[in-house]
Design a protein around this nucleic acid. Structure first.
Length: 846
RNA sequence: GCCGGUGUAGCCCAACGGCAGAGGCGCUGGUCUUAGGAACCAGAGGUUGAGAGUUCAAAUCUCUCCGCCGGCACCA
């Protein structure tokens, strides 16, 4: 053993040991409980950043802890290796996406290995390899069979100059990133997955994961799904045939007597038949061409009358049909009934275009706002200052007047259904998932277009549809894949005639929707995975990743699981039992003093390799876990890393100093009488630390675990005797403290823990030697003598020394008899004495 | 605007209704040193964002307000 702590040497040694012994390689084992610890797989950009290091440090700590607690731990990693940057590298630097991607993976794998993360590397997967993406294609075919994958027209960002499709990032600000031309929307046929079919289940099943997922992630998903309960109502178009109806969606059918217009989205199909259709078409064109609005900014409401009139099915009243920019074709039916008196947006619109305002809801409680109105007038345009949007009681609503909103909504929807002009309905903000990308570097969608047979799915036996190894990457024109004739030209699986392949590839969120199932059986050539292996490992016990994936990835993967369940592949509804969203890693931006997320553009990034080279992987990981709780922002402080090294050095020195004195210590615990007071105190500190660290691990409060380990280390430093003068019995307590400390450090700093464990006389490594988490002895963790604060009227006035077993009565007597306390109770009447055993006494006097 | 989170020492953060402080960073002083650094020892630092309520007792529970962070936002 070196006298000093040399991180680099120790880390190399143990990484080699782990590799050679396959320390983290696992297989299903029915005799042991499984634990699946998963971190979000990285995109192989080429370099690990601090956010990755934080993510994997958290996962690794938990994995080690669970192993030491006797779990069979699956801890895998892989690569989200399809996506745009590989194509951009091809355009810019003339390097093929495959080559670029594989080189990046090789480099990042090396970085992860130098971090010493305990992965089962045999299970590594990469989305861009045909043995992975063939199963993306297989799932697509299964969904296609069931009508869950379908094609429809949908807009893309289109650069008219380069005649190419752009991603949102490439068209930010409405301008093409390469040529600066203004970007247009263009409709093309694209593939969609029917996630909306699962909207209700995605909401309902949240019950199963509520306990293990952060509230805010579930809230974000709920907002995203946007369930809305209301009703459809059909309005007959006046002077047209009986089929000419406009269907609206409303959440407030109780306000229908206040409807003074129907408002359509500018691209609503009914406009084609309107008397003023040319004016409306010009208006719609202007709305479409309007500059893309800035987020957070509300556009001025604009509209135009269509010249049509509609009949209110409840009142029979005739109201005008308008088109306006604030009604969206994508939501509900693309048409609304405008009730200005009870909807802010309709109010604003009605005021601008002088539409009448009809008041039909009266407040029901004096706690609700009384809004000025003119009882005598039919139109409230002048009297009402703004809309009244609460529920209340119906007025001016024919036979329905006098009913409560809640009752009216239910009964009026039912009435509409009976009379066949509407029904109760639920709509969602959630749209189907568009997976088509007009790109090269993705999984090809396995469809063949035949002039005779139409769109034909590729037969399963012909999978995978493999990407060509080369293509021309210009960045302009159609997708590079479309230019590869040996890929595109094929024969129809049905009629064997000449046919063309689909050249769209899949969204990369497809790959990440099910990758963690593949880890369980990564080399299976017959199926995406084996059902028995899945049953042993999944669902995931703990998933760790950034909050940025709160909606898309985590919603898609929940959807995918439900789809797989319906295919009979898994037997549960939810793929992830517990989710932890880590905070971002920030650093000071030079010259501003502000803490911002590390990024290239701000120049405040810190290279993990540099830090590991300077301080060692153990110290970097320890600092990251110690500096703040995992969900919080982590402020990068190099002084903090230095502090971590200092701590490790202290522990190292303590082991070095004691190790020769320890082998002679008794193998089992000496009786308390044989130990000195200091040794008994040390045992107390040891077991207190075990209790705290264990509890904190269960809650993933790593920062406080580390603090407890530092306390234990301090207690060892305070131990008054030297190795030479300590009795054999006392040496037992030192060995116990050191071994506990080292074992509990393992999840944070596995390399140095292995090294110290070996120096404490254990062979074969921590896992190989069968070490396990230290066993808590509760009575040692308890303090036998306690200092009990005594309060008088809630103010601290004295302290008592009492045994932990002291009864309520004993504490009460002792408190009342205490001299200091009596100074405050003298001459007063004791009203009440509250005794909380082991904690405190409070005397209430008057 | 709506929803969620959060506010404790100069900073990161503990305290699961019971003494406001575990740990680290920084700062001040000391030991050591030619000096600095390192290491070790000691120490200072507070209206728990503000106000009200519940309670014997509130950082903790409830309400109102303020600040900050995040999500959604013409969603009918």
């Amino acid at each position: 053993m070196d006298e000093k702590y040399y991180a680099e040497k120790i880390e190399e040694k143990w990484q080699k040991h782990w590799r050679q012994t396959g320390a983290f390689e696992v297989e299903p084992d029915d005799a042991r409980p499984s634990f699946y610890c998963l971190e979000m797989l990285p995109y192989p950009s080429g370099f690990l950043h601090m956010g990755h290091v934080r993510n994997y440090s958290i996962g690794d700590a938990l994995s080690w802890y669970k192993r030491l607690r006797g779990f069979n731990v699956l801890h895998p990693i892989g690569w989200d290796s399809f996506g745009q940057p590989a194509e951009q590298a091809a355009i810019k630097r003339d390097i093929m996406p495959l080559e670029w991607t594989e080189a990046n993976i090789a480099h990042m794998r090396g970085q992860l290995q130098r971090m010493g993360v305990s992965y089962d590397w045999r299970r590594e997967i990469a989305a861009h390899r045909p043995d992975y993406y063939r199963w993306d294609q297989w799932f697509f075919l299964k969904m296609h069979e069931r009508g869950l994958a379908y094609k429809k027209m949908s807009p893309v960002n289109w650069c008219p100059q380069e005649e190419t499709v752009l991603s949102n990032e490439q068209s930010s600000g409405g301008i093409c990133w390469r040529c600066g031309a203004s970007v247009e929307k263009r409709d093309i046929a694209q593939w969609f997955l029917r996630i909306t079919k699962y909207a209700e289940a995605l909401l309902d099943d949240m019950r199963e994961i509520e306990a293990g997922w952060p509230e805010r992630v579930l809230t974000m998903q709920r907002n995203w799904i946007g369930r809305s309960v209301g009703a459809y109502v059909d309005f007959q178009i006046k002077d047209a045939d009986a089929n000419a109806k406009v269907r609206v969606f409303t959440t407030r059918i109780d306000t229908i007597y206040g409807a003074t217009a129907i408002v359509l989205a500018p691209d609503h199909p009914l406009i084609a038949g309107a008397p003023l259709k040319d004016d409306v078409a010009r208006f719609a064109e202007r709305v479409r061409a309007a500059a893309p609005k800035n987020p957070g900014e509300e556009e001025e409401k604009e509209g135009i009358s269509t010249g049509l009139f509609a009949l209110n099915p409840f009142s029979g009243e005739q109201i005008p049909v308008w088109a306006a920019n604030y009604v969206l074709m994508e939501y509900g039916t693309g048409a609304v009934m405008s009730v200005p008196a009870h909807d802010e947006r309709d109010f604003e619109f009605a005021q601008k275009y002088s539409l009448p305002i009809r008041r039909v809801i009266e407040r029901i409680s004096h706690e609700q706002e009384q809004i000025a109105h003119n009882e005598a007038a039919l139109d409230q345009s002048v009297a009402m200052p703004h809309a009244f949007t609460d529920y209340g009681i119906l007025v001016n609503s024919g036979d329905w007047s006098g009913k409560l909103s809640e009752d009216a909504m239910r009964e009026m929807a039912e009435f509409a259904r009976e009379k066949n002009f509407g029904e109760a309905a639920v709509t969602y903000r959630l749209r189907d998932w568009g997976i088509s990308r007009q790109r090269f570097w993705g999984a090809p969608i396995p469809i063949i277009y035949c002039e005779r047979c139409g769109a034909v799915p590729v037969p399963e036996k012909d999978l995978p549809v493999v990407l060509p190894s080369r293509a021309d990457f210009t960045g302009a024109g159609e997708s590079p894949l479309a230019g590869v004739s040996e890929f595109v030209n094929t024969t129809c699986p049905k009629c064997a005639g000449a046919a063309r392949r689909e050249t769209d590839t899949m969204d990369t969120f497809v790959d990440s929707s099910w990758y963690f199932f593949r880890y369980c059986d990564p080399h299976n050539a017959e199926a995406p995975f084996d059902a028995k292996k899945i049953a042993y490992w999944t669902p995931v016990g703990q998933y760790i990743g950034g909050i940025d994936h709160a909606v898309m990835h985590l919603l898609y993967t929940r959807f995918w699981t439900k789809m797989m369940r319906d295919l009979g592949l898994v037997s549960f509804n939810e793929p992830v039992k517990k989710l932890m969203t880590q905070g971002m890693v920030t650093n000071v931006v030079e010259g501003t003093g502000e803490w911002k997320k590390m990024s290239k553009s701000l120049g405040n990034g810190v290279d993990p390799d540099d830090m590991i080279a300077a301080y060692g992987a153990d110290a970097v990981r320890l600092f990251i876990l110690f500096a703040s709780p995992p969900e919080n922002e982590l402020r990068w402080l190099e002084a903090g890393v230095e502090g971590a090294v200092r701590f490790l050095r202290r522990v190292y020195n303590t082991v070095f100093r004691w190790r020769d004195a320890l082998p002679d210590a008794p193998k089992s615990a000496p009786a308390a009488e044989e130990l000195s007071a200091q040794a008994r105190h040390l045992r107390h500190e040891t077991h207190r630390a075990i209790a705290r660290v264990t509890e904190d691990f269960e809650r993933m409060h790593f920062n406080t675990s580390v603090a407890a380990l530092m306390e234990l280390s301090n207690a060892l430093g305070d131990f008054p005797s030297t190795p030479e003068t300590t009795t054999l019995a006392d040496r037992f307590s030192v060995r116990e403290a050191l071994e506990s400390l080292v074992l509990m450090l393992t999840p944070f700093t596995p390399h140095v823990a292995e090294e110290l464990w070996e120096k404490l006389g254990h062979e074969g490594g921590i896992l190989g030697g069968g070490a396990c988490w230290p066993q808590l002895i509760e009575e040692l963790a308890r303090k036998d003598e306690l200092e009990i604060p005594v309060q008088v009227n809630g103010k601290l006035r004295g302290r008592l020394l009492a045994s932990a077993e002291a009864s309520e009565e004993q504490l009460r007597e002792a408190a009342l008899a205490d001299e200091k306390v009596r100074g405050w109770t003298e001459g007063k009447q004791v009203v009440k004495v509250i005794v909380v055993p082991k904690r405190l006494v409070n005397i209430v006097v008057r």
